[in-house]
Design a protein around this nucleic acid. Structure first.
Lengths: 230, 230
DNA sequence: ACCTGAACACCGTTCAAGT
DNA sequence: ACCTGAACACCGTTCAAGT
């Protein structure tokens, strides 16, 4: 006979990573991100603070988990509309999430871990653009242009410093696994590696930044001319 | 006879707000922002941690002071060039500052205090646009468009929640003082109050956000068409 | 006026011990 | 396998005491 749910149900609640993260988000929403301490969180769950470490490896992992969770709240891409409408709705949905969790943008700004949910979010966004007729190269540009406007992820899109410490075999294996799970992102990643003579050097952030900036300035200049013509 | 610098020079160094802030920035540059604690900072200055409270009211004030200091590192606007060149150089200079202090953007993201240096930075930037032929209204839009791309300030450009708790007389006095010191910013602030039926309601962040987003999308769409024509 | 040190109420996390 | 509690090395800040 296996232990029934009823038996375990009698002694409080069965802790789990999901329950921990859900409680952490609720705590942040209600009392701000500074209130999210391992001790307070344990108290909220009527559990010894140390018990949390069975479901979360440390505070950094907890914060990564929180970010992963709220990024998951962003609506999935809408089907059957043009790329522009789809991107627009996506970004507005992300914005609603950030408004719902006022502490989120600050936390996201400090995180650099690429969680599965974040990767999925970026990949499906890249998919909208690719299917909308954007070249791989232009999709890459588009991410830098939209980037900080969406969340904060796109700042250093490809932090290769971690990959550089791995052996080429392992990197190749990781790339292949990424290709399967995140096809659009991989396309972009591959394009970047081919552009650079040194493999894994990442993209030129300075070039990307100026490209995005010039685009915005073009728009401003156009607005300016039109308003002066009236 | 007044006490000479030599006399005081013998017993260590004369602490000052400037010296505290300078040391804090150096510490953050060398060991990261988490290393910046009142205790470590005191140690770095060979002083009891509590002595710092004579020059800084608390940790928040220390962080505000740090941000104020690094924003002061951004180059002043270049004279005798068109608005576009001036804005471009300004933003690239701000970017260089953020690269010089990798911890800066995260800290700026958590701050909401409008220090004099930040106000001066925003005002002189607004000045470039106004003198370049931008209307007040368009200058306001431009701040939202450039906003997060420059620092992080422009997110909630006018946090009126503080002003609302003051009496109308005090608000008016503050506005008048602001007009003298920050003429271009005041123009924008006034424009906003007139647009809204409720005085002090601030600008419509949703509208501003969508306006900026649409501009970027227009640029992306243009790029897309051109790349498809080739 | 400026600095000091003890004290208080908090942190994250390790480690040995429990069931 | 999961939870616990004491312990360690840190925090920011108040307050009374020094010069």
């Amino acid at each position: 006979m296996t232990t029934s749910a009823a038996m375990r149900g009698s002694r409080r609640a069965p802790l789990s990573r999901d329950r921990v993260l859900r409680a952490a988000v609720r705590l942040a929403d209600r009392e701000g991100i500074d209130a999210v301490s391992m001790r307070k969180l344990g108290q909220l769950l009527s559990v010894d603070p140390m018990s949390l470490y069975n479901h979360v490896s440390n505070k950094d992992d907890l914060l990564d988990g929180i970010v992963d969770r709220i990024v998951g709240e962003i609506d999935q891409p809408v089907e059957g509309v043009d790329w522009r409408t789809a991107i627009r709705m996506r970004i507005l949905s992300a914005r609603q999430m950030l408004i719902r969790h006022p502490w989120a943008s600050a936390v996201i700004g400090t995180r650099k871990t690429m969680t599965p949910t974040i990767m999925a979010y970026m990949d499906s966004t890249a998919g909208i653009l690719r299917r909308g007729g954007f070249s791989v190269d232009l999709t890459h540009h588009a991410f830098h242009i939209l980037g900080s406007r969406v969340l904060g992820f796109a700042q250093e899109l490809y932090d290769e410093s971690a990959a550089l410490e791995e052996s080429p075999e392992i990197v190749a294996m990781m790339m292949e696994q990424m290709s399967a799970q995140y096809p659009y992102m991989s396309e972009v990643a591959r394009e970047i590696s081919h552009q650079e003579e040194v493999v894994g050097a990442g993209c030129d952030d300075q070039v990307e930044f100026e490209f995005a900036l010039d685009l915005i300035l073009d728009g401003l200049d156009r607005l300016r001319s039109h308003s002066n013509e009236m």
